[in-house]
Amino acid sequence: MILPPVGLLHYLILSVCLFSFGLLAVITRRHAIGILLGIELMLNSANLNLVAFSHFLSPDTVLDGQVFALMVIALAACEAAVGLAIILRFYRQAAVTDVADAKLLKW
C-alpha cells in the first residue's frame, strides 16, 4: 500500500474537519458555553492552518504563521475571559443558559 507522504494537505483537511465540527457545535449547541466551545474549535482549526502553512510553504526562518497563531491563542484567552464573564452575568440574572431562552429581546 502506498500512502501519500504526510504533508500540507493532510493538515489542511484535518483543519477543515475541526472547523466543521466547531461550526456544527455553534449551530446546534443549546448551552451558551457549548457555543463557546465550538468557537474555540474554530479558532484552533485556523491556528492549525496557520502553522501548517508556515511549516510547509515558507522557509524555516519565516515563521509569520507561528507568530500569528501565538497572537490568536492570546486573543482566545481574552475572548474566553470576557465571554465567560458575560455568560455568568447573564446566567445569574436569568437563571438559564439555554440561548433559546434568551428572548427578552426578540431574536
Binding site: 455553534v26 468557537i39 474554530m42 458575560i86 440561548v99
Partner: peptide, 18 residues
C-alpha cells in the same frame, strides 16, 4: 436586557470572528 444583548452580541461576534 443589557445582559441579554451582551450575550447575543458576544455569541454572534465570536462566531463571526472565528
Amino acid at each position: 436586557r443589557s445582559n441579554e444583548a451582551a450575550l447575543k452580541y458576544f455569541l454572534y461576534g465570536a462566531a463571526a470572528s472565528g
